[in-house]
């Protein structure tokens, strides 16, 4: 059993500020190469190392990150 996390970014509301990237202890987040409707490179998960700590969501100024966490059988 391992604790695994995942985030869902409301990409249309993300402003690509990068604050969540700095806050993530596991380097899970990067800005996408594509942009949203406002022209911002939005944040996205780039690997499966998320631990569901919610650090990214807590510092996101626009409250666009939701965090999920669960025990997963490896």
């Amino acid at each position: 059993m391992a604790i695994k996390g995942a985030i869902v970014v409301d990409t249309e509301r993300c402003k690509g500020c990068g604050v969540c990237i700095t806050a993530c202890p596991k380097d899970v987040i990067a800005l996408a190469k594509s942009v949203n409707g406002k022209g911002y490179n939005y944040a996205e998960m780039v690997n499966g190392d998320c631990i569901g700590c919610a650090g990214c969501a807590i510092v996101c100024p626009d409250g666009v990150i939701s965090v999920y966490k669960s025990k997963i059988n490896d």
Partner: peptide, 16 residues
């Protein structure tokens, strides 16, 4: 890698 985790019962943080 998200599919098993992103379910309502696993939500730990979202905007108030």
């Amino acid at each position: 890698f998200n599919q098993e985790i992103i379910k309502p019962e696993n939500l730990v943080y979202t905007k108030t």
